[in-house]
Nucleic acid binder design. Structure first.
Lengths: 375, 375
DNA sequence: CCCGCATCTGACAACGTTGTCCAGGCTCTA
DNA sequence: TAGAGCCTGGACAACGTTGTCAGATGCGGG
């Protein structure tokens, strides 16, 4: 699908006209080179050769000027620069890459660029890339493992120097040849599956445990957990944190208090309403991520009974709601920055052994988590 | 800065060891090719040549298999595929690009990927790119014209097939050679400066006018406008809309009601507090974009007096605040989608003449805009 | 049995750049 | 004034791929 052959017309050579009598293709009178250009190039950009011709110098001299290499007299340099400006020449980095072996670009595969959690993360990666002279190619996996693989491999085909991946799938064996070939790789937010790779995580377990413990400390015992699909590492870890906090407090967890699944509003809404109704409704909810929190806030706003809430991930304006939403905040930008920095250290050669880095989370109390149980 | 020469080591040929006595460089015994590989390639990826050798076929046959071209017997194909898997071969798209002339990638230059307005826009562009078999390279200009130019030109050097640009600067003459060379280009959110190019905008003028008229309709006459820097097209247009609405209502605008500048919280906060104090404070505020709205909401929450508010751009959870925030919503995803689609139609050749497309905005009333003036 | 044709395969050049190496001209010194 | 050494510039190959074209092989028909 992402294969360039299936793309908008990668313009193939124009079919040659055919001689009616012989059935043979007629090679036009134009020189072969001009012909090829007309056929495959639509823009016909000037090359160093053109610049050299116009400036009356050798090819390599142009290259020297373009790359600021020494050994060119000011006068020659002026002539070359003039030709460059006149022709609107711009170096073709594809050719350069082919020659040099590095692309000075890195790839970032995440779930959804539109998610407010990934925007800052992506931006942070970009800033680090920029500081290291590299460009960033993004792709959204839409939480689909196949799409993740497709994207990652497409990026490898582009010969990105490194990859920052927020994995959707749980098997990354397919990356082995690439890793072996020297593609630097760092996983973020969730660990890689079945391969040994660098990974930068938030302390999902600890954060969730603290958040739930916070609710328990405020007197809650019937606490609901609404999270993402259990196959997603962060969701599983946060659930584990929830269970741990409950166990620490000696509260037996009931099955109906936990709901894992896709985070679209309908599902979350149903889950929340279920927990909030019935004979022994929960008095507090722990929301497993920003998407869930937003929907739960909506549901609670419609509810008469005051229900406590702690959410994982900070959300904008959380402080202005009534009550303010208490959250376990993770620092998306720090995740991205840390991952990208490790990536470039891999590229330096400074970093060799894969490591697992865990960044702390921070409980931000704003009111919703401090509501007492209203039975 | 983005020039690859200044990047993390684009590994140059390793400096040859020098003979102490003669001062000459010693060329090692190893073959030239092996030497080169060790020096410039860190990964030494297999190429089609290697695959061909291993499979015992010709180079072109491998190419045929890799690209799914016809004319290869199943048996040959099997052998080739086996070699590919065994070696972990992956086609080098840089070389492919060099040969074919198109990169199947497009560039997106925007202000800040971390801004919740640009996330969805970027994602929409990505989806269209994906549907057309292209990858997306993003860059954030951070609202700096130089950085915008640097990014755009770096993307052109990578030979992206097209560019979607949210301009930071107001002079895009520098793009002329690129346009002439056939780089498809669409500007979004703000028009290009000094060149004739496709552009997709929201109806900033009309949206702001409607929003302000809405406040006027609810009895306000002293209405403040807090917006972005006036050199930014959207800011200027929205201010124009504000003025128009006021003029339509026959309300003379006072200088102190208008504040344009950077949208960081401190500046906006000062501006808002100024308007809200003094002898004739404003009774309503029109916030020029999402950043401004968020800060103004905060300021108003601290204020005793009820002040009406309409903001440009929708913001998450705006409906859950007390009162809900009335906004003039623009559809960021639609902007991105429309722009990207036009881009690919340019690449098709379907589209030739530059056009200016304006997407409508939508007033969403939620309460804050319907508060009566509290003098 | 051989020719013609179709099918499959491979040699080769070209894409635009950069690294290597050599040539020519200059300056400087003996 | 000649030789040595330096500086500048250019010819050439190579990066890994794809398009062209021609050669090889196999098969059927005359």
């Amino acid at each position: 699908m992402l294969d360039a052959t299936s793309s908008y017309k990668i313009m193939d050579a124009a079919p040659l006209p055919v001689d009616d009598r012989t059935g043979r293709r007629i090679v036009p009178e134009t020189t072969r080179r001009a012909d090829r250009i007309a056929a495959t190039r639509y823009g016909n950009r000037p090359t160093m050769k053109d610049v050299a011709a116009r400036a009356g110098v050798g090819l390599k001299t142009v290259s020297r000027v373009v790359n600021g290499e020494p050994g060119v007299t000011p006068e020659t340099e002026r002539r070359v620069q003039e030709a460059i400006d006149a022709l609107g020449f711009r170096r073709n980095d594809s050719a350069r890459v082919l020659r040099k072996g590095r692309t000075a670009s890195i790839g970032l595969v995440l779930e959804d660029l539109a998610d407010p959690f990934y925007g800052p993360l992506s931006r942070a990666v970009e800033e680090v890339a920029r500081a290291n002279g590299a460009l960033l190619i993004n792709g959204s996996s839409a939480e689909d493992p196949d799409r993740e693989q497709e994207l990652v491999l497409a990026l490898c085909a582009r010969r990105v120097d490194g990859l920052v991946v927020i994995p959707a799938g749980d098997n990354h064996r397919y990356l082995e040849p690439e890793l072996k070939a020297g593609v630097a790789t760092v996983f973020v937010d969730r660990p890689a599956g079945q391969i040994d790779a660098d990974v930068v995580l938030s302390d999902n377990y600890g954060g969730a445990r603290d958040g739930v413990a916070h609710l328990i400390a405020h007197g809650h015992r019937r606490i609901g957990f609404i999270g993402d699909m259990p196959r997603i590492h962060t969701a599983a870890e946060r659930l584990r944190g929830y269970r741990a906090a409950m166990e620490d407090a000696g509260i037996p967890v009931e099955e109906k208090w936990m709901s894992l699944g896709v985070t679209d509003p309908e599902r979350v809404r149903r889950a929340a309403e279920e927990m909030l109704s019935g004979p022994d409704p929960v008095t507090a909810v722990f929301a497993g991520n920003n998407r869930v929190t937003v929907t739960v806030v909506r549901v609670l706003a419609e509810h008469a009974r005051r229900v406590a809430l702690v959410g994982f991930d900070d959300i904008e304006l959380a402080d202005l709601l009534q009550p303010g939403v208490t959250v376990v905040a993770q620092d998306a930008a720090a995740l991205g920055r840390t991952a990208a920095e490790r990536l470039f250290r891999q590229l330096d050669g400074t970093l060799v052994t894969p490591e697992r880095i865990e960044l702390p989370t921070r409980l931000i109390t704003r009111g919703s988590g401090e509501l007492p149980p209203a039975d």
